[in-house]
Design a protein around this nucleic acid. Structure first.
Length: 741
DNA sequence: GCTCTGGCTCTTTTT
DNA sequence: GAGCCAGAGC
């Protein structure tokens, strides 16, 4: 985590100017040495953008700008940390590098009281936001169901907030969701304020409010941060851009770096238009284009270029490279996702046997759901991997439960968190008792936390519920004021016997929930040790972690992630799977030409992550939502120039080793029907049959029930587990004879 | 008040 | 297949 401040100065960092500049090309050098005034750097993929930003910071420091006067904003905490470290190693100074959200959170912790927020406000993620909305819908007697779900209402409100549209400006459309939003939007804002809580959008909006409503505070920030640098500017939204304009209003040293071809976050309010507006808003801005790619082979670059050129509304830009043409991009078609996963595994084994570092291998996909088949194959073949994003550690149920306890300790107004834990683990507080205490709290104008901690209020319930609330109050009172996050976690766990409860959740053989909680203790301990900050800071820190910030296992590992998470990263070997119409480009973008262009930019991002080799694959049949569908090749593959791709065979010359694997050529019209194999298996499936499950391993069928598509089997697995499975979905393989295991 | 079951929906991407 | 929810049954 980047820490602000740190004024250490070491003489050995005194360098001559040329040291920062000599390995830069002329355009990069111009960007680095631009002194004052607005600067826009249009940086193509792999053109050394990060290097330019860090060198520029180092250069500014050398020019006499104080470290505290520089604020750099990046996309992930990880990127921020790396950038801060690089600057530190160049100059020996720590500068402020943060994400938009964490910077705003930090500022609001200090000055949010000017807006009436407690210093220890809670930060709600999407899930918490939806819980809050769910409660609001209930209290407004709005029926949930069909199109109206807390999540849909929440996303709609979020979108409006990103556009800077308040409840008073909102002209609702015709849809059901809009009708609900019209009723709920304003109450939601009020409710969040009462809870002392902010969602992700609020962090930006409230900080903007602060700048607008408190000119003295605004001036203080303007004086403080005289030099602003923004990475990934193409993915900022209107509110973020507005913030930047206000922050830089006095000194106008706003340096933005971005690539319109890599704008992939429209769905969360990003505006490529910001790049065009920037030129209007700062007519005197210097614009520098970085057009030399230092990352990818010539072939990969040409292939990516061939794809992105199909976008109509695009700033003209061509990337050059001096790199060798390199190996052609491999384009493979497989029969099914299982085959895709298997061949992917084979390809990676091949790389490994050539001594490749697995840390330089990545697998990208458009949607998280595609990771599962790949993960299974990797696990079976013993390949170490990390999944970036998806359900992250801090989004897990048991972790969120424990964090909710911590949150109410820090912010007693936080009823959403209190509701989450008031009966977790179960302590006899059912709906009836819960409603009683909620009503009592409302009458007494107390938060739920306060009501639970007040013996008088607890008096409204009796019996088991009362006892439960008493024990809860006892834990909360005991833990309250504990500043050390690790200690706080321990007190909560002990007082609530949460570990025992978590152990009983779900699969009894699955110890991962307890392990996760122990991991949380470690994380909290580590935070306390490294930062000497308290519980409130710890909560803020974990609330704003990004999917790329997660720590992973030891040793080199293959990275699995969505293309969105891949932005800003690079790998020697990149596999992108699921290049099929409807998946990538995703069907949700079909009607909308702008959406399709964004999909294409996404493809461009995926391709340009690769340094040495790029393999793209698609399948003829894929199981989607429990239904096997016939898939067509992605249009993007057709846009790759012929001289850049080999449309057959295994990645990079891998040959099937005669075990009967079929190699498909693209568009050869071969109809592979995975149903054939399925039917064969189903026929053999009978009581006593030996089977292998991709996850649970070998087992024996105990009973069958139902028939055809409704058929279920009960299987006793070797490890003693008994599972009821639907053969069609479970991927069960029937094997003959017990000698197999 | 708690737990289990069956029915329903689900899959875009994230701070 | 998985997560969520409502309703039934204990």
């Amino acid at each position: 985590m980047p820490r602000f401040g740190g004024m250490l100065r070491l003489d050995r960092f005194k360098s001559t100017m040329s040291e920062y500049l000599e390995d830069l090309n002329p355009a990069q050098r111009d960007a680095v040495t631009h002194r004052d005034g607005p600067l826009m750097v249009l940086a193509g993929a792999g053109s050394g953008k990060t290097r330019v930003i860090t060198r520029r910071i180092a250069w500014l420091l050398q020019e006499g700008v104080a470290p505290g006067q520089i604020l750099a904003l990046t996309f992930t905490n990880k990127a921020a940390g790396e950038m801060a470290n690089r600057v530190e190693s160049l100059r020996g100074y720590r500068v402020h590098v943060a994400t938009f959200h964490s910077a705003c959170a930090r500022f609001l912790r200090r000055d949010g009281h000017l807006l009436g927020y407690p210093q220890n406000f809670s930060i709600y993620d999407t899930y918490d936001r939806d819980s809050c909305i769910k409660q609001l819908l209930r209290s407004h007697h709005i029926q949930v169901g069909g199109a109206v779900t807390p999540n849909k209402v929440g996303s709609r409100i979020s979108r409006l907030k990103n556009l800077g549209v308040g409840p008073e400006d909102f002209v609702s459309g015709l849809g059901e969701v809009d009708a609900v939003v019209r009723r709920i939007y304003s109450p939601y804002l009020v409710r969040m304020r009462d809870l002392g809580a902010m969602d992700f959008d609020d962090l930006l909006l409230r900080f903007r409010d602060l700048l607008v409503e408190h000119p003295d505070a605004a001036e203080m920030y303007q004086e403080r941060f005289r030099y602003l640098l923004v990475d990934e500017f193409q993915d900022t939204n209107l509110v973020q851009y507005d913030l930047l304009k206000r922050l830089s209003a006095k000194y106008r040293n706003l340096c933005v770096v971005g690539d319109p071809d890599q704008s992939i976050y429209k769905f969360r309010g990003a505006e490529i238009r910001n790049i065009l507006d920037y030129q209007d808003d700062y007519p005197d801005a210097v614009t520098i284009r970085l057009e030399t790619n230092y990352r990818s082979s010539g072939c990969i670059l040409a292939a990516a270029q061939g794809v992105i050129e199909n976008n109509k509304g695009r700033m003209d830009k061509t990337l050059r490279t001096d790199a060798e043409f390199g190996a052609p991009v491999s384009i493979c078609r497989y029969g099914s996702e299982q085959e895709e996963a298997e061949e992917l595994t084979n390809g990676i084994w091949q790389l490994m046997s050539n001594g490749i570092d697995l840390g330089e291998v990545a697998v990208f996909y458009r949607t998280h759901s595609l990771s599962r088949t790949i993960e299974q194959a990797f696990r079976q073949r013993g390949l170490p991997y990390d999944v970036v994003g998806g359900l992250t550690f801090f989004e897990r149920r048991e972790i969120k439960d424990v964090l909710a306890y911590l949150r109410v300790l820090v912010n007693p107004l936080d009823d959403v968190s209190m509701l989450r834990v008031i009966n977790v683990p179960p302590r006899g507080v059912g709906n009836v008792s819960l409603q009683k205490i909620i009503d009592r709290a409302a009458d007494a104008e107390l938060s739920l936390f306060e009501a639970v901690c007040d013996a008088d209020c607890r008096g409204v319930v009796s019996g088991k519920a009362r006892k439960g609330l008493e024990s809860l109050a006892k834990v909360l009172t005991e833990a309250r004021g504990e500043e050390n996050p690790e200690e706080a976690v321990r007190i909560v766990l002990k007082g609530t016997e949460y570990l025992g409860y978590a152990g009983g959740l779900g699969d009894p053989q699955d110890a991962s929930r307890e392990e996760n909680i122990l991991e949380l203790i470690n994380d909290a301990a580590q935070f306390a040790e490294e930062s000497d900050e308290g519980l409130a800071e710890y909560l803020q820190h974990v609330s704003l972690l990004t999917s790329q910030d997660e720590q992973h296992g030891e040793g080199p590992r293959i990275s699995l992630m969505t293309v969105h998470s891949a932005k800003g990263l690079e790998f020697d070997y990149v596999f992108t799977i699921g290049l099929e119409e409807g998946l990538f480009p995703h069907s949700r973008s079909f009607e909308d030409p702008e959406g399709m262009e964004e999909e294409r930019r996404l493809m461009y991002v995926a391709m340009t992550r690769a340094r040495k080799a790029l393999a793209l694959s698609y399948v003829s049949f894929r199981m989607i939502n429990g239904e096997t569908r016939r898939q067509d090749m992605s249009r993007f593959l057709g846009e790759i120039p012929d001289e850049c791709g080999t449309r057959m065979g295994m990645p990079w010359g891998y040959e099937a080793d005669g075990d009967g694997d079929t190699v498909y050529e693209a568009d050869d019209g071969i109809d592979y029907d995975p149903g054939d194999q399925l039917e064969d298996d189903t026929v053999q499936l009978c009581e006593g049959a030996y089977v292998v499950h991709p996850e649970y391993g070998p087992g024996q069928v105990l009973r069958l029930s139902g028939s055809g598509i409704r058929m279920k089997v009960v299987v006793l697995f070797q490890d003693g587990r008994e599972k009821t499975l639907i053969p069609e979905y479970a991927g069960l393989q029937v094997i003959d004879g017990s000698e197999e295991w």
